[in-house]
Design a protein around this nucleic acid. Structure first.
Lengths: 111, 111
DNA sequence: CAGAATCCAGTCGGATACTG
DNA sequence: CAGTATCCGACTGGATTCTG
């Protein structure tokens, strides 16, 4: 299951669905700028398969498909969100660590 | 930073370092059966670069290198562990969701 | 012991074109 | 609108070999 958490697009999808209750395919596509429609399709199918997202098709023309989090998906979203929150709070520390590491690496090369 | 959380080997490394305080390269390698020495090297260097892991080299022959979590790394580990805990608690639900999805998918094909 | 370097097969994901 | 299908370049990570 950690695969899904480790997947960039899955996380972003879940986060957006967490703030919007229900979203159509194209709405999600617009929210997640940069995602290809192929990856959105694949990601949503995987999330649906795992029981995190519910997909409802309204049989009209043109097609109308809604996505929303299941209770399980909402629970996952809470966890993911708090992890993202933590990541956000400490990203500055990581940035500094990287800078100092890279600086040391440069030193080691020149010596 | 979510890259690191999403990386399978990073998560496993962090978890092991969370229960062992300090580990040598080969000890980690043995604990994480299945990892190649290349990926262990790469993973540890990335974790060190991000400031999650401290690497201490004792200049003896043969080499003796120790890895341990930094305070930042320990904080990350707590988060990761609770997420893994959640994942574990709900993996059965996911398994069922997948089964029912796959069953439905088969139906749809045959109809 | 703890890596570094190289090679290479497999996978991922973007771009594009087509459809009910 | 909401996909599916195909092609293909890029990156990933394992296996292997070599080193202080």
């Amino acid at each position: 299951m950690l695969d899904r958490i480790g997947d960039r697009w899955s996380v972003i999808c879940i986060l957006h669905l967490g703030e919007h209750e229900v979203l159509r395919f194209t709405e999600l596509r617009r929210l997640i700028s940069g995602i290809s429609q192929r990856m959105l399709t694949v990601t949503l199918r995987d999330l649906e398969r795992d029981g995190f997202v519910a997909r409802k098709v309204k049989p009209v023309i043109p097609p109308h498909v809604e996505y929303r989090l299941t209770p399980l998906g909402r629970a996952l979203m809470e966890n993911v969100r708090s992890l993202c929150q933590w990541a956000n709070d400490h990203q500055e520390a990581v940035r500094r660590a990287r800078e100092s590491y890279d600086a040391r690496a440069l030193q080691d090369v020149s010596s």
